[in-house]
């Protein structure tokens, strides 16, 4: 192939396959299959959502600080409580758990990476669009879902397109969380280092998610 012949030492061959040439910048994060990178993204996403959901909670509390209507009107208040619940559960708690699992489980059980490294990338990258849909729903005509995070019909049926966006967002987040958990379970079942028992890797400290 090359015009300059040279000898290849045994083992050097492997280094030639470009594993060391990672893309930089944003492409690194979009294409990464590294469990630590993905775990980091999960945790930052979770933290961001925690702040967004927390701002909503603070607004709710500020409104309730005194009787009477001060800061927000009742329908927007209901949207805040609804989105606060959804964002904290689907945006902060679940991604937070998967984020920690991504970072730690492979290291704790001696696995090189998560079982499905590419699916891992996808299960994270489903989250930002879902979060965008949820937050976008605050700005559509009719306002965001305001029926509480339990979304009981028939109250939810009265809502406008904010509810449609919410339903779509919850489905995407649900898909993301199912993919995340399949990955965690498969990793623990199949990728333990030799000598690591299932019992050993299921100790609470290791896999609390």
């Amino acid at each position: 192939m090359s015009s300059t012949p040279h000898t290849i030492a045994p083992g050097e061959h492997a280094l030639d396959h470009g594993y060391a040439h990672h893309p930089g910048g944003i492409i690194r994060w979009i294409t990464t299959t590294n469990h630590k990178d993905i775990g980091t993204m999960y945790l930052w996403f979770s933290f961001t959502m925690f702040i967004v959901g927390g701002l909503m909670a603070m607004t709710i509390r500020a409104e309730l600080f005194k009787p009477g209507l001060q800061i927000v009107n009742p329908e927007f208040f209901n949207s805040l409580t609804t989105l606060h619940g959804l964002i904290m559960i689907f945006g902060a708690l679940m991604p937070g758990a998967v984020g920690f699992a991504n970072w730690m489980i492979p290291m704790q059980i001696g696995a090189p990476d998560m079982a499905f490294a590419r699916m891992n990338n996808w299960s994270f990258w489903l989250l930002p669009p879902a979060a965008l849909l949820l937050i976008l729903s605050l700005f559509v005509p009719g306002g965001a879902a305001a029926g509480g995070w339990t979304l009981y019909p028939p109250l939810t049926v009265q809502a406008g397109m904010g509810m449609d966006l919410t339903i779509f967002a919850i489905h995407i987040m649900g898909a993301s969380s199912i993919m995340g958990s399949i990955n965690i379970i498969t990793t623990i079942l199949n990728l333990r280092a030799p000598g690591m028992t299932l019992h050993g890797s299921l100790r609470p400290i290791c896999c609390s998610p």
């Binding site: 009742p74 329908e75 209901n78 029926g147 009981y152 109250l155």
Partner: peptide
């Protein structure tokens, strides 16, 4: 005691 829309508190 069950969120029923905008005037639930009223």
């Amino acid at each position: 005691a069950e969120l029923c829309g905008k005037e639930h508190g009223f």
